[in-house]
């Protein structure tokens, strides 16, 4: 087992190296000059030159690449051209909001997706199955940014069930920062009002973002359940009567969860993708907003930093999922 883990971590290192090469490559295809973004329309030539020097943009690309890798090895992501701050500081500031939103959306996806998948499998080809599959697919087929606006319009503006955009009520002061996750911080501070407020603000964006993954997870759970449910022992049990069937369904569920695990890890990626769009609609100060703003202003160091960190996050999550998977299913242990 430990050999397997070590191997996985080693290959992850390799992947991340590849990721940094790829991000650097993409960033340097850009034909535009990011310096102008930082300095704006009225910049003078001497200011532009000074900037280029300060950020090492006047040096040849291969040299820039070597410095970039060298700095990366030291955990230095460079300085953002747009915000003029170390990219690492920026990411540190925006990361918790996305982790919180992504986590909540994940929870939504699991809570809705797994039961829907199970029920769909149990009632295969009945009305519930069709409806849940159709609903799930439709959820996965909507432009997220439109859905977000519609949900805000209905649940915040018309019905007033949920608070508006942002992570926290504008006029309240947020709890003391410990983890950066407002929900956790509020809980740690034993501040019930703050907790409810943070949860309320989280609900709509998490639902918007989670809907896509819900569909993917429901679909996978359904097919994994079907696979198990039609195996001989289940059929036998089924023939014997309802009571035993119930036991078996639970048993089947356990087995069906093994393949579902991988998809849960992978769906985290779609959450990060969706965050780019959801965060704008809900004015959520997270990595997605940062990534968009950086990309639009061609801020190479920031774009590289954010893609790198997102890739790292995603890879680590998948590694964890794989390790759990390996624990559950002895067959893959040496795979």
């Amino acid at each position: 087992m430990s050999r397997y883990i070590l191997g996985r971590i080693a290959s992850m290192g390799l992947v991340l190296l590849g990721v940094s090469v790829l991000t650097f490559f993409i960033a340097h295809v850009v034909p535009a000059d990011p310096v102008l973004v930082a300095l704006g329309e009225h910049a003078r030539d001497d200011q532009i030159e000074a900037y280029r020097k300060a950020y090492g943009l006047d040096r040849p690309v291969p040299i820039q690449f070597v410095t970039y890798l060298g700095r990366l090895a030291r955990g230095d992501l460079g300085v953002s051209i747009r915000t003029r701050r170390p990219v690492a500081d920026d990411l540190g500031e925006f990361m918790p909001a996305t982790v919180e939103l992504g986590g909540a959306a994940w929870l939504v996806a699991l809570l809705l997706g797994i039961p829907a998948g199970i029920l769909s499998a149990v009632y295969k080809d009945r009305i519930f199955d069709h409806l849940s599959r159709l609903g799930a697919l439709a959820g996965a087929s909507l432009p997220v940014f439109w859905l977000g606006l519609v949900l805000l319009g209905i649940f915040y503006y018309r019905l007033q069930w949920f608070p508006g955009p942002g992570r926290f009520d504008i006029v309240l002061s947020p709890p003391q920062v410990r983890s950066g996750l407002l929900v956790v911080d509020a809980a740690l501070a034993r501040d019930g009002a703050a907790l409810r407020n943070a949860l309320g603000h989280l609900a709509l964006p998490a639902l918007t973002l989670g809907l896509f993954s819900t569909a993917v997870i429901a679909r996978m759970t359904r097919s994994a359940m079907l696979e198990v449910l039609y195996q001989d022992y289940v059929r036998t049990a089924r023939a014997k009567g309802l009571q035993e069937r119930r036991v078996i369904v639970l048993h089947a569920l356990k087995n069906a969860m093994i393949p579902t695990m991988t998809i849960i890890g992978i769906s985290f990626g779609s959450l990060l993708s969706g965050a780019v769009l959801t965060e704008t609609i809900f004015a959520w100060p997270g990595l997605g907003r940062y990534a968009t703003a950086s990309a639009v202003s061609l801020d190479f160091p920031a774009v590289m930093g954010v893609t790198l960190v997102v890739a790292l996050l995603y890879t680590v999550v998948n590694l964890l999922v794989d390790l759990i998977y390996a624990r559950l299913d002895p067959r893959v242990r040496y795979g």
Partner: peptide
């Protein structure tokens, strides 16, 4: 399964919980 459904309900209600109270007041004067 018998445990699962109530568990889901509890978690979902947690998510919806803030809706029950006056969650947002107009900004102070």
């Amino acid at each position: 399964m018998r445990m699962l459904v109530p568990a889901i309900l509890v978690l979902l209600s947690l998510l919806v919980a803030p809706a029950t109270g006056p969650t947002f007041a107009a900004p102070a004067r």
